[in-house]
Nucleic acid binder design. Structure first.
Length: 842
DNA sequence: CTCCTCTATCAA
DNA sequence: TGATAGAGGAGG
């Protein structure tokens, strides 16, 4: 048998399967999806088996054998292998990267090269090695082998000797492939298979009562017990247990432990809540779709607080009872303990949770629960869309408009697109949930609705059967009302230009100021949002106008007062806060713009007794700190939760009655065609944090653009009006959904190289038939132009945007074009990457 | 990506 | 003639 293997080299030239013979000993172990170690060139590499064949096209003499199989069962399913290859094509990236991104980091290969003394080496050779370089020899001889790289490091002068020894055969090189991480092992105590004789027990009772206690404990607990647990429970020493092991009355051995990030936490079981009629209708439709066993897509458009999560929970429950599995995607930011708790309390140990705040080991074990264990529901951020289920029935994407579903590194995939691909394979249902759907999603849903309406008006039965493999239509389910018919909070828009004109120079408008004072008096809570961390956004000299910039990026530095530093938010560059202007040495250097740190300081200035929790990247760096702050806020240990967008999403606190947006314009001013959409979504989401329970809520939005439609429509809770207005904007600029985009970015330390690269790229694209064809409106090639942040980490960045409509096979053509530039790119060390359907234009 | 080979070029 | 650097290509 032959295995087709994709090897662990992330380069264009090797992005294809290589054939290997499967040795008879491994025949039962190699499957599609297996992770194997294979000889490649003169190295030993990890690889993924992507196919099996009886014969190879290759000359059989040239075939090498698979070295070993790295896992007892294949970590990838054949479906995921197929998906990885699809991703490679669709997102113009090496399939290897796609396959790797499906697995927990613990399974990323770690390579070692060892220098080994051959067993059969004669005394004579050993003697001569000893004589030639005693230090080097001693180091290797101690264990018989030693890590090659650290040898070279420790004995830099001996590298020539080392090389010669290897040539002479006195040393052999051995390469290994291993995981990043081991399965966690701990000593555990197992009962013996043979029943214990009554005499022996009687003897124990007399001579060693403590040992008898151990046996009793072991008998009462079904199965093995951890040694540490036994010692703690009975207050004995390890010696007591060891004594029993010596007598053969029990066995102590290493047992594999599954780390559980939620161990020791009690989750109160919860049950189905009564659904409103709107919820019930949506639920019924989704449930029938899951039952049908065909791929379906739904957009669940429900206002904040309309009870989307309960619908998710109940449909998952039905999905499980049909013997199928479910994936729930949640934006990283809202994967809060609250969210996890809802799933844990409904499904208990059937849930595996995957997010970035788990340690590598914890994530690995949660993943193994899905692949080999008991989990039937996966809740997690973007990459959980790859949960290795085999009977997938339902994929839910909550807050589907969130940009975090798009991975910004290669493979630049969108979880929404991957979900559809998986649903097609499994005949599963995809549910996109949001109060503020992305324009593209909503447009697709409306288009389907309109087609249905037209079809029924014409008296036709709507077409239900689709050509297999094509994306199913997106059906719209709407929840217009909040549960318990609670009103949406009242939103006040404050024009900050007006405030200034009337002499208020504070960062708080009078309305917000009074709101805060009132809440403090009433002991209610508040959420304040400012989408900028740090203290100020830029540092400028008032004498000469000099703005302090990052020396490596074209971006101004942000002042962080607590640390007394100015920092670059792109490359992490840090310097001490300047006391004088670096340009003209004037003392008139000032900090402009407002960040969360400054808001915090102002709050304390105006309300001395106020208790503020600030949440941004700077305060939530540590593991678990996110959770810690939210718990403090829940326990009413603070009046204000102040933060960047991480406070806008998914939080639910009963006593929050005021939400304040310090500056609604931060996102609006970004040079991105989605900035209005992002603003509308952010405002609507954060407004939804108020008045979710008995107490009514109030929202204050401060802005310099009170007339902008994104602000106006958000204040009126009018998604439809916003959508209609935004669609006109998209149409006039031919932006998505009126077109599709592909962004090719390339970077280099020198601008002339980039200019030449740009010319070659345009030429290469034209050769593939991708060139400016404005007349037919098929493809538009924009650029190359400098990116909106022209330099990051000392590399200038240029980009080329393709805007196309009905142009088929664009990824294929881009790949062909960029492949033809390969030589040039390699020679000049130009980095180039392609982003299909980019979410951020920066 | 990394290693190997081939070729051009230069100094002895 | 041999050494060396750089480009090009292969890797099963």
């Amino acid at each position: 048998m032959i295995a087709n293997v994709i090897v662990d080299v992330p380069a264009k030239q090797t992005d294809r399967p290589f054939d290997y013979r499967i040795p008879p000993l491994l025949a039962d172990w190699v499957e599609v999806g297996s992770r194997v170690a294979v000889p490649f060139g003169n190295r030993l590499l990890q690889g993924f088996v992507v196919g099996m064949a009886d014969v190879s096209e290759m000359n059989p003499a040239k075939l090498k054998e698979i070295g070993s199989v790295l896992d007892p069962a294949p970590p990838l399913t054949s479906e995921l292998v197929k998906l990885g290859i699809w991703m490679g094509r669709e997102y113009v990236c090496p399939s290897l990267l796609a396959l790797q991104s499906m697995l927990p980091g613990a399974l990323k290969a770690k390579y070692k090269r060892l220098a080994v003394l051959p067993d059969e080496l004669d005394e004579d050779a050993r003697g001569r090695m000893q004589q030639e370089d005693s230090g080097l020899y001693a180091c290797i001889a101690r264990k018989g082998y030693y890590d090659l790289l650290s040898l070279i490091e420790q004995f830099p002068a001996s590298s020539a000797v080392l090389k010669r020894w290897m040539k002479l055969g006195w040393l052999e090189e051995q390469q290994t492939v291993s995981d990043r991480l081991r399965k966690k092992k701990q000593l555990a105590v197992y009962p013996t298979d043979v029943p214990l004789s009554p005499e022996a027990l009687a003897q124990l009772a007399r001579r060693a009562p403590r040992q008898l206690e151990v046996l009793d404990y072991l008998r009462d607990s079904s199965g093995p017990v951890l040694l540490s647990e036994l010692i703690a429970a009975l207050g004995i020493s390890a010696g007591t247990v060891k004594g029993l092991a010596d007598k053969g009355m029990l066995v102590i051995k290493q047992a594999e432990i599954w780390r559980d990030p939620y161990a020791g936490r009690q989750f109160k079981a919860s049950h189905r809540l009564q659904l409103t009629s709107e919820q019930q209708a949506a639920y019924d439709t989704i449930k029938h779709a899951v039952q049908s066993g065909d791929a379906h897509r739904f957009l669940l458009h429900g206002v904040t607080g309309s009870g989307k999560t309960e619908i998710y929970l109940q449909t998952i429950e039905d999905c499980l009872s049909m013997g199928k599995e479910a994936i729930v995607l949640v934006p990283e930011i809202s994967l809060t303990p609250q969210m996890v708790e809802r799933f844990k309390s409904r499904f208990g140990d059937l849930v595996a949770v995957l997010h970035s705040r788990l340690s590598q080991g914890e994530r690995y074990d949660e993943w193994r629960k899905i692949r080999y264990g008991t989990a039937q529901v996966a809740v997690g951020a973007r990459s959980a869309v790859f949960a290795p289920f085999t009977r997938l029935g339902l994929i839910i994407i909550d807050e589907e408009h969130e940009s975090s579903y798009k991975q910004e590194e290669s493979p630049k995939y969108h979880a929404r697109e991957v979900a559809v691909q998986r649903a097609l394979h499994h005949g599963a249902v995809v549910v996109l949930g949001s109060a503020t759907p992305s324009i593209e999603t909503y447009a697709a849903a409306l288009q389907h609705e309109q087609r249905e309406a037209a079809a029924s008006a014409a008296g036709e039965r709507s077409e239900r059967t689709l050509p297999s493999g094509s994306t199913p239509p997106l059906r719209l389910l709407t929840l217009k009302r909040r549960v318990m018919d609670r009103p949406l909070p009242q939103i006040h828009v404050v024009d900050m230009r007006e405030e200034l004109r009337e002499g208020n120079r504070m960062m708080f408008s009078r309305r917000l100021y009074e709101g805060i004072a009132k809440r403090l008096e009433r002991r209610e809570q508040m959420v304040l949002l400012l989408n900028r961390r740090g203290y100020s956004t830029f540092v400028m000299c008032r004498s000469c106008g000099y703005v302090v910039q990052c020396p490596h990026c074209d971006i101004s530095l942000t002042y962080h007062r607590r640390a007394g530093q100015i920092r670059c938010h792109y490359c992490g560059y840090t310097e001490k806060e300047p006391g004088e202007c670096p340009g003209c040495q004037s003392r008139h250097i000032r900090f402009f713009g407002t960040g969360t740190q400054k808001v915090e300081e102002e709050l304390y200035k105006h309300f001395p007794d106020i208790r503020v929790i600030r949440m941004d990247v700077d305060t939530t760096g540590e593991k678990g700190s996110h959770e810690k702050w939210l718990n403090l806020f829940r326990e009413k240990e603070a009046d204000v939760l102040l933060g960047t967008q991480m406070v806008a999403k998914g939080l639910d606190f009963p006593d929050v009655t005021l939400v304040g947006v310090i500056a609604a314009d931060t996102v609006l001013n970004l040079p991105d065609f989605r900035s209005a959409e992002k603003t509308f979504q952010l405002l609507t989401q954060v407004a939804g944090r108020a008045g979710r329970h008995e107490l009514p809520g109030e929202v204050v939005i401060q802005t310099y653009h009170p007339d902008h439609y994104s602000v106006e429509m958000a204040a009126k809770h009018d998604y439809s009006a916003f959508f209609a207005r935004e669609m006109r904007h998209r149409q006039s600029g031919l932006y998505p959904p009126y077109s599709r985009l592909a962004l090719i970015t390339f970077s280099h330390p020198d601008i002339p190289v980039l200019l030449q690269t740009g010319e070659r790229l345009i030429h290469a694209l034209a050769e593939q038939g991708v060139s400016e064809v404005r007349t037919s409106g098929r493809v538009e090639v924009l650029g190359p132009v400098a990116s909106s942040i022209p330099r990051i980490k000392d590399r200038y960045r240029f980009q080329c945007m393709l805007k196309y409509r009905h142009e088929p096979r664009i990824p294929e053509k881009i790949r062909a074009a960029t492949d033809s530039l390969d030589e040039w790119l390699k020679k000049h060390q130009v980095q180039l990457s392609t982003d299909m359907n980019p979410q951020v234009m920066l």
